[in-house]
Design a protein around this nucleic acid. Structure first.
Lengths: 221, 221
DNA sequence: CCGTATTTTCAGCCTCGTTTCAGCTTGGTT
DNA sequence: AACCAAGCTGAAACGAGGCTGAAAATACGG
Protein backbone atom coordinates (compact mmCIF):
# COMPACT_ATOMS: atom_id res chain seq x y z
CA UNK A 1 0.00 0.00 0.00
CA UNK A 2 1.51 3.23 -1.13
CA UNK A 3 0.45 6.35 0.69
CA UNK A 4 1.02 10.02 -0.06
CA UNK A 5 1.17 12.29 2.95
CA UNK A 6 0.70 15.98 2.16
CA UNK A 7 1.60 18.04 5.21
CA UNK A 8 3.88 20.99 5.85
CA UNK A 9 4.31 20.75 9.60
CA UNK A 10 7.67 18.96 9.74
CA UNK A 11 7.45 17.72 13.31
CA UNK A 12 4.00 16.29 12.69
CA UNK A 13 5.27 14.66 9.50
CA UNK A 14 8.10 12.96 11.34
CA UNK A 15 5.88 11.18 13.87
CA UNK A 16 3.10 10.49 11.39
CA UNK A 17 5.40 8.97 8.85
CA UNK A 18 6.86 6.66 11.40
CA UNK A 19 3.48 5.51 12.64
CA UNK A 20 2.17 4.95 9.15
CA UNK A 21 5.23 2.96 8.18
CA UNK A 22 4.84 0.87 11.29
CA UNK A 23 1.30 0.14 10.13
CA UNK A 24 2.69 -1.17 6.87
CA UNK A 25 2.34 1.67 4.40
CA UNK A 26 4.98 2.89 1.99
CA UNK A 27 4.90 6.62 2.71
CA UNK A 28 5.88 9.46 0.39
CA UNK A 29 5.71 13.02 1.68
CA UNK A 30 4.96 16.34 -0.02
CA UNK A 31 5.26 19.52 2.02
CA UNK A 32 3.75 21.97 -0.44
CA UNK A 33 0.92 22.21 -2.94
CA UNK A 34 3.02 22.08 -6.10
CA UNK A 35 4.81 18.89 -5.18
CA UNK A 36 1.56 17.38 -3.96
CA UNK A 37 -0.12 18.15 -7.25
CA UNK A 38 2.69 16.60 -9.21
CA UNK A 39 3.02 13.47 -7.10
CA UNK A 40 -0.71 12.88 -6.96
CA UNK A 41 -0.95 13.11 -10.73
CA UNK A 42 1.31 10.09 -10.98
CA UNK A 43 -1.76 8.17 -9.94
CA UNK A 44 0.19 5.44 -8.22
CA UNK A 45 -1.04 5.90 -4.67
CA UNK A 46 -3.56 3.73 -2.95
CA UNK A 47 -4.51 6.54 -0.64
CA UNK A 48 -3.67 10.18 0.01
CA UNK A 49 -3.72 12.09 3.31
CA UNK A 50 -4.05 15.78 2.54
CA UNK A 51 -3.69 18.77 4.82
CA UNK A 52 -5.64 21.76 3.56
CA UNK A 53 -3.36 24.47 4.91
CA UNK A 54 -0.44 24.37 2.50
CA UNK A 55 2.12 26.80 1.19
CA UNK A 56 2.13 27.68 -2.53
CA UNK A 57 -1.15 26.10 -3.49
CA UNK A 58 -4.23 25.41 -1.41
CA UNK A 59 -4.97 21.79 -0.68
CA UNK A 60 -8.52 22.32 -1.87
CA UNK A 61 -7.30 23.44 -5.29
CA UNK A 62 -4.96 20.50 -5.52
CA UNK A 63 -7.80 18.13 -4.74
CA UNK A 64 -10.11 19.76 -7.26
CA UNK A 65 -7.46 19.47 -9.93
CA UNK A 66 -6.95 15.79 -9.23
CA UNK A 67 -10.66 15.15 -9.45
CA UNK A 68 -11.19 17.05 -12.65
CA UNK A 69 -8.38 15.06 -14.23
CA UNK A 70 -10.28 11.89 -13.32
CA UNK A 71 -7.93 10.83 -10.56
CA UNK A 72 -10.06 8.84 -8.16
CA UNK A 73 -7.52 7.93 -5.50
CA UNK A 74 -9.20 7.98 -2.08
CA UNK A 75 -8.32 11.16 -0.20
CA UNK A 76 -8.55 11.88 3.52
CA UNK A 77 -8.47 15.57 4.29
CA UNK A 78 -7.01 17.01 7.49
CA UNK A 79 -8.71 20.17 8.75
CA UNK A 80 -8.73 22.30 11.84
CA UNK A 81 -11.22 20.95 14.33
CA UNK A 82 -14.69 22.47 14.19
CA UNK A 83 -14.13 24.15 10.85
CA UNK A 84 -17.21 22.41 9.56
CA UNK A 85 -17.61 24.63 6.50
CA UNK A 86 -14.11 23.63 5.45
CA UNK A 87 -15.18 20.03 5.66
CA UNK A 88 -18.28 20.59 3.58
CA UNK A 89 -16.12 22.33 0.98
CA UNK A 90 -13.74 19.40 1.12
CA UNK A 91 -16.50 16.94 0.38
CA UNK A 92 -17.72 19.05 -2.48
CA UNK A 93 -14.22 19.10 -3.89
CA UNK A 94 -14.25 15.32 -3.86
CA UNK A 95 -12.74 14.25 -0.55
CA UNK A 96 -13.67 10.81 0.64
CA UNK A 97 -13.22 11.54 4.31
CA UNK A 98 -11.70 14.08 6.60
CA UNK A 99 -10.24 14.22 10.07
CA UNK A 100 -10.13 17.19 12.41
CA UNK A 101 -6.80 18.14 13.96
CA UNK A 102 -5.57 17.23 16.44
CA UNK A 103 -6.38 13.57 16.11
CA UNK A 104 -5.29 10.25 17.52
CA UNK A 105 -3.18 8.12 15.21
CA UNK A 106 -5.49 5.17 15.81
CA UNK A 107 -8.32 7.12 14.35
CA UNK A 108 -6.38 8.00 11.23
CA UNK A 109 -5.36 4.38 10.79
CA UNK A 110 -8.96 3.24 11.22
CA UNK A 111 -10.13 5.69 8.58
CA UNK A 112 -7.41 4.71 6.14
CA UNK A 113 -8.21 1.05 6.47
CA UNK A 114 -11.92 1.75 6.11
CA UNK A 115 -11.32 3.69 2.89
CA UNK A 116 -9.05 1.07 1.43
CA UNK A 117 -11.49 -1.65 2.27
CA UNK A 118 -14.23 0.36 0.70
CA UNK A 119 -12.53 0.94 -2.63
CA UNK A 120 -11.61 -2.70 -2.93
CA UNK A 121 -15.13 -4.01 -3.23
CA UNK A 122 -16.26 -4.33 -6.78
CA UNK A 123 -18.96 -6.00 -8.77
CA UNK A 124 -18.92 -9.28 -10.65
CA UNK A 125 -22.02 -10.42 -12.45
CA UNK A 126 -20.26 -11.67 -15.53
CA UNK A 127 -20.80 -15.19 -16.73
CA UNK A 128 -18.15 -16.19 -19.19
CA UNK A 129 -17.50 -19.19 -21.41
CA UNK A 130 -14.88 -19.04 -24.11
CA UNK A 131 -15.79 -16.22 -26.44
CA UNK A 132 -19.18 -15.62 -24.85
CA UNK A 133 -19.80 -13.19 -22.02
CA UNK A 134 -23.17 -12.83 -20.42
CA UNK A 135 -23.71 -9.66 -18.42
CA UNK A 136 -26.15 -10.81 -15.77
CA UNK A 137 -26.82 -7.27 -14.63
CA UNK A 138 -27.81 -5.94 -18.00
CA UNK A 139 -28.88 -9.20 -19.64
CA UNK A 140 -26.61 -8.53 -22.54
CA UNK A 141 -24.64 -11.13 -24.44
CA UNK A 142 -21.30 -10.06 -25.84
CA UNK A 143 -19.12 -12.09 -28.16
CA UNK A 144 -15.38 -11.92 -28.55
CA UNK A 145 -15.81 -10.45 -32.02
CA UNK A 146 -17.43 -7.43 -30.41
CA UNK A 147 -21.01 -8.09 -31.41
CA UNK A 148 -23.56 -7.93 -28.65
CA UNK A 149 -27.20 -8.72 -28.20
CA UNK A 150 -29.88 -7.58 -25.82
CA UNK A 151 -31.69 -10.69 -24.63
CA UNK A 152 -35.33 -11.04 -23.74
CA UNK A 153 -36.23 -12.54 -20.39
CA UNK A 154 -36.71 -16.09 -21.61
CA UNK A 155 -33.67 -16.03 -23.86
CA UNK A 156 -31.60 -14.84 -20.94
CA UNK A 157 -32.79 -17.49 -18.51
CA UNK A 158 -32.25 -20.24 -21.01
CA UNK A 159 -28.79 -19.07 -21.99
CA UNK A 160 -27.76 -18.63 -18.40
CA UNK A 161 -28.77 -22.17 -17.65
CA UNK A 162 -26.78 -23.41 -20.62
CA UNK A 163 -23.72 -21.43 -19.57
CA UNK A 164 -23.93 -22.81 -16.07
CA UNK A 165 -24.15 -26.37 -17.36
CA UNK A 166 -21.93 -26.64 -20.40
CA UNK A 167 -21.15 -30.01 -21.94
CA UNK A 168 -24.08 -31.68 -20.27
CA UNK A 169 -27.04 -33.19 -21.99
CA UNK A 170 -30.04 -31.15 -20.93
CA UNK A 171 -33.45 -32.54 -21.76
CA UNK A 172 -36.25 -30.29 -22.90
CA UNK A 173 -38.20 -31.05 -19.75
CA UNK A 174 -35.19 -30.20 -17.58
CA UNK A 175 -34.84 -26.91 -19.40
CA UNK A 176 -38.55 -26.28 -19.03
CA UNK A 177 -38.30 -26.75 -15.30
CA UNK A 178 -35.41 -24.37 -14.94
CA UNK A 179 -36.52 -21.66 -17.31
CA UNK A 180 -40.08 -21.46 -16.06
CA UNK A 181 -41.20 -21.16 -12.50
CA UNK A 182 -43.73 -23.95 -12.64
CA UNK A 183 -43.44 -26.50 -15.36
CA UNK A 184 -46.04 -25.54 -17.88
CA UNK A 185 -47.91 -27.86 -20.18
CA UNK A 186 -45.63 -30.52 -21.54
CA UNK A 187 -47.18 -30.25 -24.96
CA UNK A 188 -45.34 -27.25 -26.30
CA UNK A 189 -42.27 -26.64 -28.35
CA UNK A 190 -41.27 -23.37 -26.72
CA UNK A 191 -37.85 -24.69 -25.86
CA UNK A 192 -37.23 -25.63 -29.46
CA UNK A 193 -38.24 -22.15 -30.50
CA UNK A 194 -35.94 -20.47 -28.03
CA UNK A 195 -33.06 -22.77 -28.81
CA UNK A 196 -33.39 -21.65 -32.39
CA UNK A 197 -33.33 -18.00 -31.34
CA UNK A 198 -30.30 -18.53 -29.15
CA UNK A 199 -28.52 -20.34 -31.93
CA UNK A 200 -28.89 -17.27 -34.09
CA UNK A 201 -27.02 -15.35 -31.44
CA UNK A 202 -24.41 -17.66 -29.99
CA UNK A 203 -23.70 -19.52 -33.20
CA UNK A 204 -25.46 -22.55 -34.61
CA UNK A 205 -22.71 -25.03 -33.79
CA UNK A 206 -22.68 -24.05 -30.16
CA UNK A 207 -25.85 -25.92 -29.25
CA UNK A 208 -25.86 -29.55 -30.34
CA UNK A 209 -29.07 -31.55 -30.58
CA UNK A 210 -29.01 -35.04 -29.11
CA UNK A 211 -32.06 -36.48 -30.74
CA UNK A 212 -34.40 -38.01 -28.20
CA UNK A 213 -32.34 -36.83 -25.23
CA UNK A 214 -31.94 -33.11 -25.29
CA UNK A 215 -29.43 -30.39 -26.04
CA UNK A 216 -25.79 -29.95 -25.28
CA UNK A 217 -24.09 -26.57 -25.00
CA UNK A 218 -20.50 -26.92 -26.07
CA UNK A 219 -17.93 -25.44 -23.71
CA UNK A 220 -14.93 -25.71 -26.00
CA UNK A 221 -15.77 -23.71 -29.05
CA UNK B 1 -32.78 7.30 -2.03
CA UNK B 2 -34.17 5.48 0.91
CA UNK B 3 -32.63 6.35 4.24
CA UNK B 4 -32.98 4.73 7.65
CA UNK B 5 -32.61 7.10 10.57
CA UNK B 6 -31.90 5.37 13.87
CA UNK B 7 -32.25 7.87 16.68
CA UNK B 8 -34.23 7.92 19.92
CA UNK B 9 -34.29 11.64 20.63
CA UNK B 10 -37.74 12.48 19.30
CA UNK B 11 -37.23 16.21 18.94
CA UNK B 12 -34.01 15.67 17.03
CA UNK B 13 -35.77 13.12 14.86
CA UNK B 14 -38.49 15.54 13.96
CA UNK B 15 -36.20 18.25 12.62
CA UNK B 16 -33.75 15.81 11.06
CA UNK B 17 -36.44 13.93 9.24
CA UNK B 18 -37.86 17.09 7.78
CA UNK B 19 -34.47 18.32 6.61
CA UNK B 20 -33.61 14.99 5.09
CA UNK B 21 -36.90 14.79 3.28
CA UNK B 22 -36.40 18.27 1.95
CA UNK B 23 -33.11 17.09 0.56
CA UNK B 24 -34.98 14.38 -1.30
CA UNK B 25 -34.57 11.29 0.82
CA UNK B 26 -37.30 8.83 1.65
CA UNK B 27 -36.84 8.58 5.40
CA UNK B 28 -37.84 5.71 7.66
CA UNK B 29 -37.21 6.06 11.37
CA UNK B 30 -36.35 3.55 14.09
CA UNK B 31 -36.14 4.76 17.68
CA UNK B 32 -34.71 1.63 19.29
CA UNK B 33 -32.17 -1.09 18.58
CA UNK B 34 -34.63 -3.90 17.93
CA UNK B 35 -36.57 -2.06 15.26
CA UNK B 36 -33.34 -0.77 13.75
CA UNK B 37 -31.98 -4.29 13.51
CA UNK B 38 -35.11 -5.55 11.85
CA UNK B 39 -35.47 -2.69 9.37
CA UNK B 40 -31.81 -2.72 8.44
CA UNK B 41 -32.00 -6.43 7.73
CA UNK B 42 -34.51 -5.67 4.99
CA UNK B 43 -31.49 -4.48 3.07
CA UNK B 44 -33.38 -1.96 1.01
CA UNK B 45 -31.77 1.19 2.32
CA UNK B 46 -29.26 3.21 0.40
CA UNK B 47 -27.83 4.65 3.56
CA UNK B 48 -28.29 4.41 7.32
CA UNK B 49 -27.71 7.10 9.93
CA UNK B 50 -27.15 5.39 13.25
CA UNK B 51 -26.99 6.87 16.72
CA UNK B 52 -24.96 4.70 19.06
CA UNK B 53 -26.84 5.49 22.26
CA UNK B 54 -30.02 3.47 21.89
CA UNK B 55 -32.51 1.80 24.19
CA UNK B 56 -32.90 -1.98 24.07
CA UNK B 57 -29.87 -2.79 21.98
CA UNK B 58 -26.64 -0.88 21.50
CA UNK B 59 -26.12 0.68 18.12
CA UNK B 60 -22.72 -0.93 17.96
CA UNK B 61 -24.24 -4.39 18.32
CA UNK B 62 -26.83 -3.65 15.71
CA UNK B 63 -24.13 -2.55 13.31
CA UNK B 64 -22.01 -5.61 14.00
CA UNK B 65 -24.97 -7.86 13.34
CA UNK B 66 -25.68 -6.19 10.04
CA UNK B 67 -22.12 -6.59 8.96
CA UNK B 68 -21.81 -10.23 9.93
CA UNK B 69 -24.92 -10.94 7.90
CA UNK B 70 -23.18 -9.44 4.88
CA UNK B 71 -25.23 -6.27 4.80
CA UNK B 72 -22.97 -3.64 3.30
CA UNK B 73 -25.28 -0.64 3.35
CA UNK B 74 -23.24 2.49 4.06
CA UNK B 75 -23.62 3.56 7.69
CA UNK B 76 -22.91 6.95 9.23
CA UNK B 77 -22.57 6.75 12.98
CA UNK B 78 -23.53 9.62 15.28
CA UNK B 79 -21.40 9.86 18.42
CA UNK B 80 -20.80 12.28 21.22
CA UNK B 81 -18.14 14.76 20.21
CA UNK B 82 -14.59 13.87 21.12
CA UNK B 83 -15.41 10.30 22.08
CA UNK B 84 -12.73 9.15 19.67
CA UNK B 85 -12.47 5.65 21.09
CA UNK B 86 -16.15 5.19 20.33
CA UNK B 87 -15.42 6.19 16.76
CA UNK B 88 -12.58 3.73 16.40
CA UNK B 89 -14.87 1.04 17.76
CA UNK B 90 -17.45 2.14 15.25
CA UNK B 91 -15.05 1.78 12.36
CA UNK B 92 -14.01 -1.63 13.58
CA UNK B 93 -17.66 -2.63 13.70
CA UNK B 94 -17.98 -1.60 10.08
CA UNK B 95 -19.11 2.02 10.03
CA UNK B 96 -18.30 3.96 6.91
CA UNK B 97 -18.22 7.35 8.53
CA UNK B 98 -19.18 9.10 11.73
CA UNK B 99 -20.25 12.50 12.84
CA UNK B 100 -19.85 14.02 16.31
CA UNK B 101 -22.91 15.54 17.94
CA UNK B 102 -23.93 18.28 17.82
CA UNK B 103 -23.50 18.82 14.11
CA UNK B 104 -24.73 21.09 11.36
CA UNK B 105 -27.29 19.61 9.00
CA UNK B 106 -25.20 20.72 6.04
CA UNK B 107 -22.37 18.56 7.23
CA UNK B 108 -24.56 15.51 7.58
CA UNK B 109 -25.96 16.10 4.11
CA UNK B 110 -22.47 16.49 2.69
CA UNK B 111 -21.37 13.23 4.29
CA UNK B 112 -24.42 11.36 3.09
CA UNK B 113 -23.91 12.64 -0.40
CA UNK B 114 -20.21 11.74 -0.29
CA UNK B 115 -20.99 8.21 0.84
CA UNK B 116 -23.62 7.72 -1.82
CA UNK B 117 -21.21 8.98 -4.45
CA UNK B 118 -18.23 7.09 -3.21
CA UNK B 119 -18.56 4.22 -5.61
CA UNK B 120 -18.63 6.71 -8.42
CA UNK B 121 -15.81 8.75 -6.92
CA UNK B 122 -17.23 12.06 -7.90
CA UNK B 123 -17.19 15.34 -6.12
CA UNK B 124 -20.24 15.95 -3.98
CA UNK B 125 -23.06 18.40 -4.60
CA UNK B 126 -23.11 17.80 -8.31
CA UNK B 127 -24.07 14.49 -9.79
CA UNK B 128 -22.77 14.18 -13.29
CA UNK B 129 -23.14 11.63 -16.04
CA UNK B 130 -21.99 12.44 -19.53
CA UNK B 131 -23.90 15.50 -20.67
CA UNK B 132 -26.22 15.57 -17.65
CA UNK B 133 -25.53 17.44 -14.45
CA UNK B 134 -27.84 17.27 -11.49
CA UNK B 135 -27.46 19.95 -8.85
CA UNK B 136 -28.47 18.09 -5.72
CA UNK B 137 -29.00 21.17 -3.63
CA UNK B 138 -31.17 23.10 -6.03
CA UNK B 139 -32.70 20.06 -7.68
CA UNK B 140 -31.94 21.45 -11.09
CA UNK B 141 -30.97 19.40 -14.09
CA UNK B 142 -28.61 20.96 -16.61
CA UNK B 143 -27.68 19.52 -19.96
CA UNK B 144 -24.51 20.10 -21.92
CA UNK B 145 -26.46 21.98 -24.56
CA UNK B 146 -27.23 24.63 -21.94
CA UNK B 147 -30.86 23.78 -21.34
CA UNK B 148 -31.90 23.27 -17.75
CA UNK B 149 -34.96 22.11 -15.90
CA UNK B 150 -36.31 22.61 -12.42
CA UNK B 151 -37.38 19.19 -11.19
CA UNK B 152 -40.24 18.37 -8.90
CA UNK B 153 -39.47 16.32 -5.79
CA UNK B 154 -40.38 12.97 -7.25
CA UNK B 155 -38.67 13.65 -10.54
CA UNK B 156 -35.54 14.57 -8.64
CA UNK B 157 -35.50 11.48 -6.43
CA UNK B 158 -36.06 9.18 -9.35
CA UNK B 159 -33.45 10.82 -11.55
CA UNK B 160 -30.88 10.79 -8.77
CA UNK B 161 -31.42 7.10 -8.24
CA UNK B 162 -30.99 6.51 -11.95
CA UNK B 163 -27.81 8.59 -12.05
CA UNK B 164 -26.34 6.69 -9.14
CA UNK B 165 -27.15 3.36 -10.76
CA UNK B 166 -26.53 3.76 -14.46
CA UNK B 167 -26.45 0.75 -16.74
CA UNK B 168 -28.33 -1.43 -14.33
CA UNK B 169 -31.73 -2.91 -14.85
CA UNK B 170 -33.93 -1.34 -12.20
CA UNK B 171 -37.33 -2.91 -11.75
CA UNK B 172 -40.35 -0.80 -11.08
CA UNK B 173 -40.66 -2.25 -7.60
CA UNK B 174 -37.03 -1.46 -6.83
CA UNK B 175 -37.56 2.09 -7.97
CA UNK B 176 -40.73 2.25 -5.90
CA UNK B 177 -38.81 1.19 -2.80
CA UNK B 178 -36.10 3.76 -3.25
CA UNK B 179 -38.18 6.71 -4.29
CA UNK B 180 -40.93 6.35 -1.71
CA UNK B 181 -41.11 5.73 2.01
CA UNK B 182 -42.78 2.75 3.68
CA UNK B 183 -45.90 2.43 1.57
CA UNK B 184 -45.72 -0.07 -1.23
CA UNK B 185 -48.84 0.48 -3.22
CA UNK B 186 -48.54 -2.57 -5.38
CA UNK B 187 -50.55 -1.65 -8.40
CA UNK B 188 -49.92 1.86 -9.50
CA UNK B 189 -48.16 3.11 -12.56
CA UNK B 190 -46.60 6.17 -10.96
CA UNK B 191 -43.15 5.03 -11.95
CA UNK B 192 -44.20 4.72 -15.56
CA UNK B 193 -45.64 8.21 -15.42
CA UNK B 194 -42.48 9.71 -13.95
CA UNK B 195 -40.26 7.83 -16.33
CA UNK B 196 -42.21 9.44 -19.11
CA UNK B 197 -41.73 12.88 -17.57
CA UNK B 198 -38.02 12.30 -17.07
CA UNK B 199 -37.67 11.10 -20.62
CA UNK B 200 -39.02 14.41 -21.82
CA UNK B 201 -36.17 16.09 -19.98
CA UNK B 202 -33.15 13.82 -20.22
CA UNK B 203 -33.95 12.56 -23.70
CA UNK B 204 -36.11 9.65 -24.70
CA UNK B 205 -33.24 7.35 -25.65
CA UNK B 206 -31.58 7.75 -22.31
CA UNK B 207 -33.97 5.51 -20.42
CA UNK B 208 -34.40 2.12 -22.03
CA UNK B 209 -37.34 -0.12 -21.20
CA UNK B 210 -36.58 -3.76 -20.67
CA UNK B 211 -40.02 -5.23 -20.96
CA UNK B 212 -40.85 -7.42 -18.01
CA UNK B 213 -37.72 -6.50 -16.10
CA UNK B 214 -37.53 -2.77 -15.61
CA UNK B 215 -35.69 0.28 -16.85
CA UNK B 216 -32.08 0.93 -17.67
CA UNK B 217 -30.51 4.37 -17.57
CA UNK B 218 -27.78 4.50 -20.16
CA UNK B 219 -24.45 5.82 -18.94
CA UNK B 220 -22.68 5.94 -22.27
CA UNK B 221 -24.90 8.15 -24.33
C1' DC C 1 -58.67 29.57 3.34
C1' DC C 2 -57.78 29.95 -1.53
C1' DG C 3 -55.09 29.25 -5.71
C1' DT C 4 -51.37 26.77 -7.59
C1' DA C 5 -48.14 23.04 -8.12
C1' DT C 6 -47.51 18.35 -7.69
C1' DT C 7 -48.79 13.71 -7.33
C1' DT C 8 -51.71 9.92 -8.42
C1' DT C 9 -55.26 7.60 -10.87
C1' DC C 10 -57.41 5.86 -14.84
C1' DA C 11 -58.80 4.24 -19.37
C1' DG C 12 -57.72 3.44 -23.96
C1' DC C 13 -54.15 2.41 -27.04
C1' DC C 14 -49.98 0.32 -28.60
C1' DT C 15 -45.91 -2.67 -28.48
C1' DC C 16 -43.37 -6.54 -28.42
C1' DG C 17 -42.14 -10.93 -26.03
C1' DT C 18 -44.27 -15.27 -25.82
C1' DT C 19 -46.63 -19.08 -27.50
C1' DT C 20 -48.90 -21.66 -30.95
C1' DC C 21 -49.18 -23.97 -35.14
C1' DA C 22 -48.57 -25.99 -39.62
C1' DG C 23 -45.50 -27.49 -42.83
C1' DC C 24 -40.93 -28.98 -43.53
C1' DT C 25 -36.39 -31.44 -42.61
C1' DT C 26 -33.57 -34.78 -40.48
C1' DG C 27 -32.07 -39.09 -38.71
C1' DG C 28 -32.83 -43.61 -37.03
C1' DT C 29 -35.08 -48.14 -37.69
C1' DT C 30 -36.73 -51.94 -40.27
C1' DA D 1 -35.86 -47.09 -49.58
C1' DA D 2 -39.81 -46.22 -46.82
C1' DC D 3 -41.57 -44.87 -42.77
C1' DC D 4 -42.06 -42.36 -38.60
C1' DA D 5 -40.80 -39.83 -34.69
C1' DA D 6 -38.24 -35.93 -33.36
C1' DG D 7 -36.65 -31.58 -34.32
C1' DC D 8 -36.59 -27.12 -37.05
C1' DT D 9 -38.56 -22.96 -38.74
C1' DG D 10 -41.28 -18.84 -40.21
C1' DA D 11 -45.23 -16.54 -39.52
C1' DA D 12 -49.23 -15.33 -37.05
C1' DA D 13 -52.12 -14.75 -32.79
C1' DC D 14 -52.30 -13.56 -28.32
C1' DG D 15 -51.94 -11.02 -24.28
C1' DA D 16 -49.33 -9.00 -20.50
C1' DG D 17 -46.87 -5.05 -19.96
C1' DG D 18 -45.87 -0.42 -21.14
C1' DC D 19 -47.24 4.35 -22.81
C1' DT D 20 -49.82 8.46 -22.68
C1' DG D 21 -53.01 12.46 -22.05
C1' DA D 22 -56.08 14.20 -19.14
C1' DA D 23 -58.65 14.42 -15.03
C1' DA D 24 -59.02 13.86 -10.12
C1' DA D 25 -56.93 14.10 -5.62
C1' DT D 26 -53.69 15.95 -2.65
C1' DA D 27 -50.03 18.94 -0.81
C1' DC D 28 -48.23 23.50 -0.41
C1' DG D 29 -47.34 28.51 -0.06
C1' DG D 30 -49.17 32.79 1.03
Amino acid sequence: MRLLLVEDDTTLVRTLKKDLQKAGYAVDVADNGIDAQYLGDENIYDIIVLDLGLPQRSGLDVLKNWRTSANTTPVIVLTARDAWHERVDGFKAGADDYLGKPFHIEELLARISALLHRSRQKAGGLLQLDDLTLDEERQILTKADGSSYVLTGTEFRLLRYFLLHPDHILSKSTLMEHVYEFDADKDSNVIEVYVKRLREKVGKERIVTRRGQGYLFKGTA
